[in-house]
Design a protein around this nucleic acid. Sequence first.
DNA 1: TGTCCACTGGAAGGGAGGGCTT
DNA 2: AAGCCCTCCCTTCCAGTGGACA
Length: 416
Amino acid sequence: MQESIFKEYLDIKSIFKKNRDVLRPSYIPEKLLHRDEHIDQIASILASALRGDQPSNILIFGKTGTGKTATVKYLGKEIKKATDTLPTPLKDVRYIYINCEIVDTQYGVLQNIGNRFIEDFNERIPPTGWSTERVYNILWEKIDQSPKVVVVVLDEIDRFVYKSGDDTLYHLTKINDDLKNAKVSLIGISNDLKFTELLDPRVRSRLSDEKIVFPPYDADQLKDILRQRAEIAFEDGVIEEGVISLCAAVEAHEHGDARRALDLLRVAAELAERSKEEQINENHVIRAKNKIELDCVIEAVRTLPIQSKLVLMSILIGEENGNHKQMTGDVYSTYRTLARKASKGILTQRRVADLISELDMMGLVSARVKSFGRGGRTKVITVSVPLLETRQVLEKDPMLEPVKGIKLKTQSTLEL
DNA sequence: TGTCCACTGGAAGGGAGGGCTT
DNA sequence: AAGCCCTCCCTTCCAGTGGACA
């Protein structure tokens, strides 16, 4: 019998002990390091839920990878533990976690909360079709059927408000006025300290009864976290001296982001494993850092909608032609040529300006508004990603086949 | 000091698409 | 099938603007 082509890989002794998920951000460890203070603080607020009272609403701020989500999920587990062991008459506490990056519409959020209660009755709210008011009414009715405390966690709440406004938050913060039996409290998690400025003042004051800020981790704290996970993830002696310090130092220097530090360690380990080495060394970490950066860009570019790809392609072409300070108008005229060649509808300049802003927010390009006096006021756009690789990714899209390898030199060739 | 450029960015609204109710 | 509802993507319209220049 022929040997499996995978045999060679299966024979390698894995440097991971069992599951590498320990190094993924979704993993919640038994003990969260360096967040005791924050956990206590939130726990003291949520404790009233276990007594059947409504806890204050909480707003949690902090950059990505500062342990906000982990802390809140951890507390969710603890609350469940506490309610399971509480003697009767125990209070019914529901802890609902919603990631607003995934569920980012008003309807979606209400539907998500509503379905948790309606499941009890073997019904469900459809993903679309009902009026928002109807969803709210049924949600309210079902929640209030028995005494309970409902804690709703809205992760990435800033995205939600930015995109869909604060109507839903207004209703949710006001819902307690209408409820007779149940009580609802909200925990909002945000990266952005300023998003509350977008809120209606009434919502703002109700939502932020308590504010908690998560600072970034410093290098020593990151080291502790990495060590904690590494002990679970790897066999003894797999990690060379200095690897953990390097991972911690790299991320502490940039953002203090534990998520990224863990990613770095995991990818370094995978690189070591793939090159059939038995130890992870500093060189793997450096390669991992480059790989992660490039992978992020490639993934972001690959999943762009077609019109955004055309806009990005236009910016790349401008840059390739030596125009390092492109303006919205330049990009737009190149874009029109490309869109025409690719037989796509041609968007208005207004829309393209928005797409450029989106690319800027994603970090693929940099677009700063600058005034040139009589020369007008416009965005100055430069590319922030590697030209060659990005272009290769774009050209893999079959829809962009007609503009593959295109080079536009002068204005005269632009207006065919 | 006022003008004027080349947009920016907010607002309103249309219409397609998906899905529900009656 | 007709009539709703919500969301997404987009257009149209337009007041506003930073700063070089006359």
